[in-house]
Design a protein around this nucleic acid. Sequence first.
DNA 1: TTTTGTATTGTAAGCGCTTACAGAATCATT
DNA 2: AATGATTCTGTAAGCGCTTACAATACAAAA
Lengths: 328, 328
Amino acid sequence: MNIYDIAKEAGVSIATVSRVINNKGTVSDATRAKVEAVLSRSGYTPSAIARGMVSKSMRTVAVLTVDIRVPHYAQQAYTIEQAFSHRGYEVILCNTGGGKEATVRYLRAVTEKQVDGIILVGSVFNRIGREPEVEALLRQAPVVLANGRLDIPNASSVLLDDESGAALAVDHVTALGKRNLWYVKDLNTASALAKRDGFIKACERCGDRVRGRVIETEFSIEGGRHAAKELLRSCRSFDAIICGEDETAVGVVKGLLSAGVRIPQDVAVTGYNNSIFASMCEPRLTSIDNKPEQVALMCVQLLERMMDGEPGGIVEVFKPELAQGWTT
Amino acid sequence: MNIYDIAKEAGVSIATVSRVINNKGTVSDATRAKVEAVLSRSGYTPSAIARGMVSKSMRTVAVLTVDIRVPHYAQQAYTIEQAFSHRGYEVILCNTGGGKEATVRYLRAVTEKQVDGIILVGSVFNRIGREPEVEALLRQAPVVLANGRLDIPNASSVLLDDESGAALAVDHVTALGKRNLWYVKDLNTASALAKRDGFIKACERCGDRVRGRVIETEFSIEGGRHAAKELLRSCRSFDAIICGEDETAVGVVKGLLSAGVRIPQDVAVTGYNNSIFASMCEPRLTSIDNKPEQVALMCVQLLERMMDGEPGGIVEVFKPELAQGWTT
DNA sequence: TTTTGTATTGTAAGCGCTTACAGAATCATT
DNA sequence: AATGATTCTGTAAGCGCTTACAATACAAAA
């Protein structure tokens, strides 16, 4: 069932049918009625592929995310999907797992499908974005990077200011009178390093009255618990623990509570991301919220601008916010 | 940059270029090398749209889910996406929100895009699947329903046996010696009703020694807490509480613990779905796991079968499993 | 009535690819 | 050298649509 069938049935030409369907050009009322009757009677569905052939667009955008099961990414994918859905675009979802090979495979697939835009959620592209093979693919469509930078003309990005996020936590606990701060470094990503640096700088800004030190552990609740035990065991003085991730912070809280430490009177604890872990932990974690929904909406706006033909190269910096909980 | 450019550059016909790209038909080694050289030098990307025009397939499947932010759906979407990705298909993700209007809009969009298959996650279609408008759309592609039934020839489905899931919980706590069971009904979905019926029937199967009653509350942690307080307040006897959802069960646990009730010695509690709520609750909830990943894989298999031309109409019933926690 | 302008409709090209078919080239066989 | 079989390559049609342009119809103005 195609446009020819409809045209024949209605006794008009395919151009007229097309004009009726797209409500474009001039069609007399009588003809329009005739065609519309056939249209609704037949259950005809126009082929988006054939349309795409002409317009070179399938009205589709691709979202490449590391893993949609991570709530943070799910929220962003959801926000992006809804925003585009309301504008008549569908979203192709790709779970890259963060690996280069899969990422390239997905990029190739979606560029072949001539998506109208690509949003990259996650930071793989800081590493692989400059490889010629990858860059060639990325040049095929407007690209927006959530949390990362990419120096090609058709790419924009939203950067998360992790340094200021960590500084937010430091300022918060020092304002509460805490003086001996520890940063729990759990990951080795660029983001985690930025947080650590932000922590150190913020402590230095406070002068001698505040001391900031770093302890490393594994990224997990267990890792956090272990870090807490380690601090307690080594008899180091501490009255605030700034963690790189909520998971770790949950572990720290558990470790401290089980040792009889009072939170936040004795020790304040902060997490990062204001994730579900922060909300389910009792007492509720104070955490740094980088508002995945807002970031996603910024990405959508940047992409739309490029899809409208405006140049890319824009870098927006998103400042995280402090989400106060019961642990500070 | 299209296949004509490549052909001209390589001094061959477009048919030969096509044969090289698709590794189909016969091409002499010399010609192949010549074309491949041009191909890699030019960074040419074949147009999937044009291919789709010929093959009437974009190698894409659609996943309609209520809300990807719900971890259960995220897991299923992830599983489906990965499975199809490995077979060279991309996935279009739609968040319907469970409403009819949005659902129809998405169905129309993806059928216009001539997706090779549709997987419907969530149960809206039990209600709207029979409306002529919806059915006409659903007939355009092979369809698989996760947790729901649809009587059209090109649809298969995986049903979750909610009754047996609830019975699993009943059998488990009665085996532990519990005799006064309550079912906490929190939702009004078909699924929730099936669980309640399964609960009642399972209790009846135990004869006089077991008594099963039902209490209603709101679907939320707070609702669960409220139900627990209510049971305590009204001085009813109970030694096991079977909940329709993990969220409610978490609330029940909190309510009981704060009243000094020992779990599971005094009262056993079970949730449903074995979600992240079950795992983050302390003590860890015993819950009913309907294995979203396995269900998703069954959906994929059913869809693939239909995409290979085999008839649909298959209904697989998935039996949930008990996930033992510390609350029983 | 003829002319001019406008509203309506149709014809045909072309989007980039696959593929059936035909034709050319090569090779083995007689 | 001629024939047939085989391998290789090119031509052209067609996938279902949009749209530029041509053609027609019709109404108003001259």
